[in-house]
């Protein structure tokens, strides 16, 4: 769960991390008017504009639980965003939040209403290994690690996460490399190597695809709402 309250107006870039969010947004002066938002697994960056006093409460699902939110529609969910009535159609229990003070606890109440499909434990393990290895494992090696074929692993990724295993791995690799540059102060060429990119051009293409910027032009307003690396 996360929350964010804007102290000034502005805009921010939200980076894709392949996970689905359930978000409710309101303004501090009118806390009872809420705008529900549901996001599919994101692979593209998007911009959010906000005013001072805007606040968000969100639930970020573990990647393999995308199917719990989108059910049979997960195939169409990547990079889609449902707002207002569409979000309520997707998750009717969100309507219970109308007229009540918005808190993390109130938002947490809607989680049990999701129907959680069974997740192959090998998928959960594969996701954990991918995070630990910075997305640097090939999918066939990853499948071998968890004891299944890469075909099966891809099938459960698409069925539960909504993305291919490779796309999810590339997202992790992107976030880790970005963190090497921004938090680790690692020079760009060295970050490309440590991040596991075959060359600088390959890293630049990935940064443009997932971030909309180049490694040397990383914007400073990437922090809304806090994107965890795991």
């Amino acid at each position: 769960m996360w929350s964010f309250c804007a102290s000034t107006s502005g805009s921010a870039v939200v980076l894709p991390d392949g996970r689905c969010d359930i978000i409710v947004r309101n303004h501090a002066s009118t806390p009872h008017e809420i705008k529900p938002v549901i996001t599919g697994p994101a692979t593209r960056p998007y911009h959010v504009d906000f005013d001072a006093g805007d606040q968000w409460f969100g639930i970020r699902l573990r990647p393999e639980h995308g199917a719990a939110l989108w059910q049979g529609d997960l195939g169409n969910a990547p990079d889609s965003v449902l707002r207002g009535p569409e979000a309520l159609d997707r998750l009717p229990s969100l309507s219970a939040l109308h007229g009540v003070p918005l808190t993390r606890d109130a938002l947490a109440q809607i989680i049990p209403s999701l129907t959680w499909p069974r997740v192959d434990p090998r998928l959960t393990r594969a996701i954990d290994i991918l995070h630990a290895s910075g997305g640097r494992l090939r999918i066939d090696a990853l499948a071998e690690c968890v004891g299944c074929t890469s075909r099966h692993l891809n099938r459960v990724f698409r069925r539960n996460v909504g993305l291919s295993a490779k796309t999810y791995a590339q997202l992790i690799q992107f976030h880790r490399t970005l963190k090497l540059i921004t938090s680790g102060n690692v020079p760009i060429i060295a970050a490309a190597f440590e991040g596991g990119y075959s060359d600088h051009a390959h890293m630049t293409r990935t940064f443009r695809r997932f971030g909309g910027f180049t490694p040397s032009g990383i914007p400073t307003d990437l922090s809304l709402p806090g994107i965890p690396f795991k």
Binding site: S183, G184, N185, V186, P187, A190, E194
Partner: peptide, 20 residues
Amino acid sequence: CQPVGAPSEKPWGQIVSYVR
């Protein structure tokens, strides 16, 4: 050595860095 994380201070006051 290959840089992985330049020296930074942890919340508990320790300075930590990583190389390979």
